[in-house]
């Protein structure tokens, strides 16, 4: 039992389950799934579908954070990739053609990849602090997106593009398949190769890793490329959802929600050990929370207040000081000061 509780996914999972339970009790319709024309509908399905952009961005963010970095530019990259995709589709003679849409998607994702590589170059090669390096693109990116769309919100009518966010495959939302594919891809890349452990090594102790012969530059660069690429895909999904490229609203604040999702999933912002499953749960918590807030009749504009309290709650739960106080109140034993020795071993006894 205690062993379970000490698992680092314990709290995230419990929070998610609790959130779903509260919703299910408050409005039983929340857990209902209806079948219409062989396609599944319901609040839970909506959560899975709507979470796709955040899921992609948060997965990329996880890898970046594992290297001790942060990618603030993801929202701007989403805006750019959406702008590129929509501008290509808008400019083509046949916006409804599947080929056109595929070309648009591939080009926009490639652009996002290049933007990610640019971030990676600044961080890994020029060794600029990640916050600042990605701040450059965060500032400039939306400007670039506005230039691409000439300052307008480009709208298109293109069924194949609409399918990306709203279509169904095998009865499930197509966007969910994108999420699952991204999760599987990241999990394979990180955990079936040595990339995961080398990434963690770089994140925990970059200098020691370099001295040991780890190609830290390549690993850091790669992390930003992944983050940029995934943000690009997220940008396509976002613009498919609203069938428009909105350089200002696309991915607004998504970098903050993505970071929140990663932290909720138990990955520390200081880099190192990371959990892909944790991030997935973190994203679902945020999406469920958003759905809950909407249900409560709070305007979505006010929802940041809730997230403020979520952030505070999460950091307090993770804070060592709160842990100490709690231990003192529950009468935990004192022991010798041991800077290099972890405590907590005695909990099992």
């Amino acid at each position: 039992m205690t062993r379970w509780m000490r698992h680092r996914l314990f709290l995230p999972v419990v929070s998610l389950v609790a959130l779903i339970l509260v919703n299910a009790i408050a409005r039983p319709r929340f857990v209902q799934i209806t079948v219409r024309d062989g396609e599944l509908y319901g609040a839970l399905i909506d959560i899975l579908r709507n979470s796709a952009p955040l899921m992609l961005v948060a997965l990329g963010m996880t890898v970046v954070i594992a290297t001790r970095g942060i990618d603030l530019s993801v929202g701007a990259v989403m805006a750019v990739s959406g702008a590129v995709a929509l501008t290509i589709i808008d400019g083509s003679s046949d916006p409804g053609n599947v080929g056109t849409v595929l070309v648009a998607i591939v080009v926009s994702v490639l652009v996002a990849l290049v933007l990610g590589a640019w971030n990676g170059f600044l961080v890994a090669v020029l060794e600029i602090q990640p916050i600042i390096a990605t701040l450059v693109l965060m500032l400039a990116g939306r400007g670039v997106a506005l230039l691409i769309t000439d300052g307008f919100i480009t709208t298109v009518t293109s069924p194949p593009l609409k399918y990306v966010a709203s279509g169904h495959l095998l009865g499930l939302p197509f966007a969910l398949f994108i999420s699952v594919a991204a999760i599987a891809l990241i999990a394979l890349m990180e955990r079936r190769t040595a990339l995961g452990v080398l990434t963690e090594a770089v994140g925990i102790n970059p200098e020691a890793s370099r001295l040991t012969g780890v190609r830290s530059r390549g690993i850091i660069l790669g992390a930003y490329v992944v983050s940029g690429t995934f943000a690009g895909v997220a940008g396509v999904i976002y613009s498919s959802n609203i069938m428009a490229a909105d350089a200002n609203a696309a991915g607004e604040l998504i970098e903050l929600y993505a970071i929140l999702a990663v932290v909720l999933g138990g990955t520390s912002l200081t880099g190192g050990k990371f959990s892909i499953a944790g991030t997935v749960i973190g994203v679902l918590i945020i999406q469920t929370l958003q759905s809950t807030i909407l249900f409560l009749g709070v305007s979505s504009a006010e929802s940041p207040v809730f997230f403020a309290f979520v952030v505070i709650l999460v950091v307090l739960i993770q804070s060592p000081r709160v842990y100490q106080v709690a231990r003192r109140m529950t009468g935990g034993r004192r022991h010798h000061p041991a800077p290099e020795v972890t405590t907590g071993v005695e909990v099992t006894s």
Binding site: L256, T270, A301, A308, I312, V315, S319
Partner: peptide, 30 residues
């Protein structure tokens, strides 16, 4: 206080402040 007494990274602590301020602004008026 979050930064100093609860060892929260400034980035995250002020992120909470960002959400709080923005949300409260909308609570006051849309």
């Amino acid at each position: 206080v979050l930064v100093q007494y609860f060892d929260v990274q400034p980035f995250i602590a002020s992120l909470a402040g960002l959400f709080l301020g923005r949300g409260l602004a909308f609570v006051v008026s849309l």
